[in-house]
Design a protein around this nucleic acid. Structure first.
Length: 191
DNA sequence: TATAAGATTTACT
DNA sequence: GTAAATCTTATAT
């Protein structure tokens, strides 16, 4: 088991990273409490060429600025006024690619998952992009956080995901993106 | 300064 | 299965 290094995130193939991150372990230490979850679902956001990406066409705003920096940082933003969505910025400088984490499975600190989500069982406790951030206590102010630091990081536990359990398909909830909404950039581990 | 729309979740019919 | 909740960001006055 080891923590992913900074160079891992500099890979310019965001689709490869989205696939490779399935089975990795997302960890947070917030308020002195450690929680870990196995990543089971991701989506790739392929920079300026991707209509579904916030940085499509080189749009550079205060919000998307972080994606134009080097990979290895967190990009957390609020959707529908309620939900915090967690992205991993990837690729070299000026290449605004990112991987959206859409789902995790509780691994460590399960008690925290239950408390933060106010639930009594672990079923579907962090199966959506907005709910996993709640379970791991990730908030918008974590944007820009180094993923090799002490607050949010990713570990490789050597978990093997069989090819036949990996579902690849079009992304969800981005119908407005036209043709790009159909690209097979979504990866889901069917356990 | 004001308005429109959104990478979703939850509750209710 | 359908609809409401809810507030930030981006774009237009």
């Amino acid at each position: 088991m080891y923590k992913l290094s900074a160079t891992y995130y500099l890979n310019n193939d965001v689709v490869f990273l989205a696939k490779d991150l399935i089975g990795k372990v997302l960890c947070t230490e917030i308020d002195g409490q450690v929680a870990k979850g196995i990543i089971t679902e991701t989506e790739a956001y392929n920079g300026v060429h991707d209509k579904a990406c916030h940085a499509y066409g080189g749009r550079r705003t205060d919000r998307t600025e972080i994606m134009f920096g080097e990979g290895g940082k967190a990009y957390v933003y609020l959707c529908y006024g309620i939900h915090h969505l967690f992205n991993i910025v990837t690729g070299p400088k000026d290449d605004p690619t990112a991987v959206l984490i859409r789902g995790v499975e509780p691994l460590e600190g399960k008690k925290l998952f239950l408390e933060r989500r106010k639930k009594t069982n672990l079923k579907n406790i962090s199966s959506g992009p907005g709910t996993l951030t709640q379970a791991l206590a990730i908030k918008t102010h974590h944007t820009g956080e180094e993923l090799i630091g002490e607050t949010i990081w990713i570990e490789d536990h050597g978990i093997d995901v069989p090819e036949n359990e990996l579902e690849i398909g079009p992304r969800i909830g981005i119908d407005y993106a036209g043709e790009d909404a159909k690209l097979p950039f979504r990866f889901l581990w069917r356990m």
